[in-house]
Structures are given as C-alpha cells and as structure tokens.
Simulated assay, not measured.
Amino acid sequence: MKEIKSILAAYDRLDHATQRAALATVVRVEGSSYRRTGARMLVMDDGTWVGGISGGCLEGDALKRARLAIARSKSSLVTYDTTEDDAHQIGVGLGCNGIIDVLLTPVLPDDPHSPIAVLQDVVADRRQTNVLLTITKLEGSLNGFETGNIIRYANPESLGGLDNDSLADHLEQRIRKVVEQSKSAALSFTLEDGRELEIFAEFLPPELHVIVMGHQYDVFPLVKVIKEAGWRATIVANPHKIHREVAALVGAVVPPEEFNPKLIDNYTAVVLMSHDYKTDKNNLPLVLAAPYIGLLGPRVRAEKIFNELGKEGITISPEVEERIFAPVGLDIGAITPEEIALSMVAEIRAVFSKRDGGMLRERTSTIHER
C-alpha cells in the first residue's frame, strides 16, 4: 500500500496540461523475481518514475516502453524472460531467473476506467479488502472495457458493467477462490466470439494497522519503523504524554478512556508496552479479538497476567493464547529500543504472512509461493 500511496502522490503533483504518465504493473510472475505481482511503477513522459517493478534490472527498459505506450495512448503487455541463456535479454545475469509480465497503461485523466482512479478509491477506503481485476489481454473492447482497464470488485454487481452474464458467472467463481486463498491469480477466458480475455485478479488487503498501547520513549522507534514499512499506527495513550514528533508519525493518538475495540479487524496487530503491569493487564481483555497481540516483558509476567485475569473470571483460551506473543518480537538478540522495534515489526510481518520468522537459508521451499 505504501507504493500505491507514493504513486498517487506523484500523480497528484503532475501538471496534466503539460505532462503525461503511464502505470507499469507486474501482472504475472513465473519462477524467481525480486518483485511479485502487484508491484507498480508510475512513469512520466519526462523519464522520471516512482515505484518499482524489479530490483533495478527491468526499470530502464520498462521506462522506454512506457513512454512509447504514452505516445500511442495504448496499453501493452511486455514479457521479460530471464530464464533464457541470451546475453541480449533484459535482466539476464542479474539473478532474476524468472518470467515477468508487465502491463503498461497510459493514464488519462478523463478515462472512466483509469487505474489511478481505482487506486484512489482503494486508498480512500483504507480498511476494505479489495480484489482488483485488471484486463491484461483483450483484442478490441468488451462493452467499453479495454486492455489496461481495472474493475474494483466488491460484489457480483461489480461485474454488471461487462454486460456478459456467462463471463460474470465464471469470473465470480474464480474470484471466490482468490479471496479464499488470499492470493492473486492470472485468469484466462475465451469469449463467445472466440476472443481471448486475460485478467489479473489481484488480492489487495488493507495496510497493516498496529495499535500501540503505551507512551514511553520506546514507542518512538517503533512507530518510526512502522511508518517506514508503510503500515498504519495508532497510539493509545494520554495525548499530553506523546511528543509531537511521535504524533506526526501515526494516524491517531487515542486517549485510553476513548479506545474502542472496534478499531481491531483482521489486519490489526496490538502491542501492549505501557511498562506498567496494571495497565497492560487492564488493556489485554480489550484486545483479545486481535489476530496478533504483542506483550512487552518476560514470559513469567504474561503468565502472571493470565492467571490473575482467570481468577477474575476472564479466561484466556488456548486459541487466544496462541495469538499472544510474550515476550514480543523475534529472537535476534535485540538490545536497544531501535533493535527491539525491528524485532517486533519483523514478528508482526511474519505472523500475518503465516511464516515462522526463521532464516531464509534454512527454508526448504521457494521464498515466495508460486
């Protein structure tokens, strides 16, 4: 989401009377690639760009092709095959060893299906899980939709604009699978008239939201790392105890008496770090619905909190305890507040990615699922 926000900010700065732009999007990856599907880059006709589609090996060529797409006002799909032993192939020798499809779409301010407009809607509705359907291959048009257009799927009615009930039914079935697996997919269909239609169905969850319950000095490095990761942070503490530099890095500072557990959704992590036993104990029952709960301090401290809450009639079930990480953070030998913040953010990322946070060299399968 951070990359999308940067792209939208750059687009807003354009003088549309004199400048034009194209959006490059990775829509398919086979094998190894530094960036995965959904990576984006906004290319301006003056040769500048924001975002990225690789580790640097494809950007130069994509820049040239994007400027050509701008000149032609027509989307195009480019395939980079770095698996071939061809010295003239872009990316060979840089270790990519994969096949990457990049869609280049001119961005026109008056286009009703502009990808920028769709991304603006996605960012505005920050807590919504989205499925974006990008047409990557289509000869001609389909009821006004062309290659490069995006449909933001919310429900079956979102497909009504296609004016094709049979296609909509098939799409709906495939979208359900994308949502169930929380995984983007490349979809292919054959239309009644024989034309091939290819769609990149992108599963785009909301940005991770970290609720930090505490006001001590170690909150500052934590929210800085969260901000750099492109996540959203909320601090629950007395606003008068939060330095203005810290407040500037977060989405909100909420007084403890105004905290509402409804802030928690499936993409919310909570970190209890008040450095006060009683405060953490009182806060824990309020956040038990969170998919990740980090509790600062040693394990014996957490067990004491669990036991005392149990005696007070608040039972921490095994299922809930599985979501409580105490001590919080990965075991990286962190000592300073900055290192501890790094270990906490890394653990949060691992949990939401369903990974164990181990060393990649010990991973027996590929880094990314294929």
Score class of each variant (00 low, 15 high):
4 I>Q: 05
5 K>C: 11
8 L>F: 06
17 A>I: 00
18 T>F: 09
22 A>C: 08
22 A>S: 07
23 L>E: 01
25 T>G: 03
30 E>F: 13
30 E>Q: 13
37 T>L: 00
45 D>Y: 02
46 D>M: 05
49 W>T: 10
55 G>H: 04
55 G>M: 02
61 D>H: 05
65 R>H: 10
67 R>H: 03
67 R>K: 15
67 R>Y: 00
69 A>E: 08
81 D>Y: 08
85 D>P: 09
88 H>Y: 12
89 Q>N: 14
94 L>D: 00
96 C>E: 02
106 P>R: 02
107 V>D: 02
108 L>V: 14
109 P>C: 09
110 D>L: 11
110 D>F: 04
111 D>L: 08
111 D>Q: 08
115 P>C: 04
118 V>H: 06
119 L>C: 09
120 Q>M: 08
124 A>I: 01
125 D>S: 12
126 R>S: 14
126 R>A: 13
127 R>E: 11
130 N>W: 15
131 V>L: 05
133 L>P: 03
135 I>V: 15
137 K>C: 05
139 E>Y: 07
139 E>Q: 14
141 S>F: 08
150 I>K: 05
150 I>A: 01
153 Y>W: 09
153 Y>C: 01
157 E>C: 03
158 S>I: 03
158 S>Q: 09
162 L>K: 12
167 L>N: 11
170 H>L: 14
172 E>S: 15
174 R>S: 11
174 R>D: 06
181 Q>L: 13
187 L>M: 11
197 L>D: 04
197 L>W: 10
197 L>K: 05
200 F>T: 03
200 F>C: 07
208 L>K: 14
208 L>N: 07
211 I>G: 09
211 I>W: 10
217 Y>K: 14
218 D>R: 13
228 E>W: 11
228 E>Q: 15
231 W>L: 11
237 A>G: 05
237 A>S: 11
239 P>M: 05
244 R>Q: 14
248 A>Q: 12
250 V>P: 11
251 G>P: 00
255 P>K: 08
259 F>G: 11
268 T>K: 04
278 K>P: 00
279 T>V: 14
280 D>E: 10
283 N>L: 10
283 N>W: 10
290 A>R: 02
294 G>D: 02
298 P>E: 10
299 R>W: 05
301 R>S: 10
301 R>P: 09
304 K>V: 06
306 F>D: 01
309 L>R: 04
315 T>M: 13
315 T>H: 13
317 S>Q: 07
319 E>R: 06
321 E>N: 15
323 R>L: 00
333 G>M: 06
333 G>E: 12
339 E>Y: 03
340 I>C: 10
344 M>K: 00
350 A>H: 01
352 F>P: 05
355 R>T: 13
358 G>N: 07
361 R>V: 14
366 T>A: 13
368 H>A: 14
